[in-house]
Every structure is written in structure tokens, then in C-alpha cells.
């Protein structure tokens, strides 16, 4: 594991250099794929949202600062990184469910600067993990798990709690703190 980590870090560092001055100045956002990474495990289709379960309504203003900041996801399968720009305060790229390998919260520090990543879409009751401002997770390394779920009766998907985030992420939303922030 240590060797793999060193390799991954080495690749990250090397890519930062290879990508040239722009990367050095502006931080190339693209996480680096590696041949050492395990291939994503094929997962069963996720269930549909049950009737009566609401989509989370964020308190986030329509146009916020972090919309200008950056939240990145990377997929080995798609071989590219994706930036959520503009007013996309929540969501997930179409067709990327269960395919994300690296996530990076490069948002502007301030209100709503943390990111919930959901096992299902951002539905009330869905399990989630939270990425702090400035932090990144290489999901291929170690067992990142969905560590939170709504504590209420409508926590209809309690079972994904503890499931690995790797290749299971399917939604994100900006939040103002990491922790019990769902409903």
C-alpha cells in the first residue's frame, strides 16, 4: 500500500511538472489516472427515488461564491476531470453515477465551502460523505465510506451507510459545514 501511495503521489507530482507553467501557476485541476488503480467494480443499478421522498432543497443562494469556486470529480472510466462551474451548486455529471475515483474541493473558503457527496442523488435520506474545503480524496486508496445519513424517519437508505465511496458517488451539494447537515 505504501508503495502504491508513493507511486500515486509521484505521478501527481510529475504531472504537475509536465503540464507546464500554467499548471504550476493555476493548479491543474485534473486528478491523475493511474494504471495501478483497481478497475471499478460493476455495481447494480441504484433504485429509483421512492414516492414522497423529496429532493434536498439547499439553502444555498442561486448565485453563490462557491459556484465560482471549483469542485472536481475524476473518473478513470471517463478519463477526464469534470468541473462544476457557474451556478451548479449541486448535481452530478450525466452517466457518471458509480464511476468517480477522485474528488477535490477547491472551492472558495467561506459560506457553503464544504461538499457532501451522496451515495444516491441528493435525496433526503441518502447517505453521504463530506469533503472539507481544500481537501481531496483519491477514492481508490483506502476505504472512504459514506459516513452520514439523515437521522430521521425518512432515512430510507440507511443501508449504504458505511459503503465505500469509490465508484458509488452519484451526487453532490455544497454545504456550510461537514457533519450532520442533511435533512
Amino acid at each position: 500500500m505504501k508503495i502504491l501511495r508513493d507511486v500515486l503521489l509521484g505521478v501527481m507530482t510529475a504531472t504537475a511538472v509536465i503540464t507546464g507553467t500554467q499548471a504550476a501557476a493555476y493548479a491543474d485541476p485534473a486528478p491523475v489516472p493511474t494504471s495501478e488503480a483497481e478497475k471499478p467494480v460493476s455495481t447494480a443499478a441504484k433504485p429509483e427515488r421512492p414516492d414522497g421522498v423529496a429532493k434536498i432543497q439547499s439553502g444555498l443562494p442561486v448565485r453563490t461564491l462557491n459556484a465560482d469556486g471549483n469542485f472536481y470529480v475524476w473518473s478513470d472510466d471517463r478519463n477526464k476531470a469534470l468541473l462544476y462551474p457557474g451556478d451548479a451548486y449541486d448535481g452530478w455529471p450525466e452517466g457518471w453515477n458509480n464511476r468517480v475515483d477522485v474528488i477535490w474541493n477547491n472551492g472558495f473558503p467561506g459560506r457553503y465551502d464544504d461538499v457532501n457527496v451522496y451515495d444516491y442523488a441528493t435525496w433526503s435520506g441518502s447517505a453521504y460523505a463530506c469533503v472539507g474545503n481544500g481537501d481531496y480524496w483519491d477514492l481508490r486508496r483506502g476505504d472512504y465510506v459514506f459516513s452520514w445519513v439523515n437521522d430521521g424517519a425518512d432515512a430510507w437508505q440507511r443501508s449504504p451507510l458505511g459503503r465505500r465511496v469509490h465508484d458509488n458517488g452519484s451526487g453532490h451539494i455544497w454545504v456550510d459545514w461537514c457533519g450532520n447537515n442533511n435533512r
Binding site: L9, A16, Y26, W104, R141, G142, D143, Y144, V145
Partner: peptide, 16 residues
């Protein structure tokens, strides 16, 4: 710029 990395193994799993 992520060229140099700090890391922390979390008790709940994963390395941030």
C-alpha cells in the same frame, strides 16, 4: 497546487 501533499489517514477509513 497539490504538487506537494499533506495526508491524513482517517479513523473512519480513507486518506484525506
Amino acid at each position: 497546487d497539490r504538487a506537494a501533499a499533506l495526508e491524513a489517514e482517517l479513523p473512519i477509513g480513507g486518506t484525506v
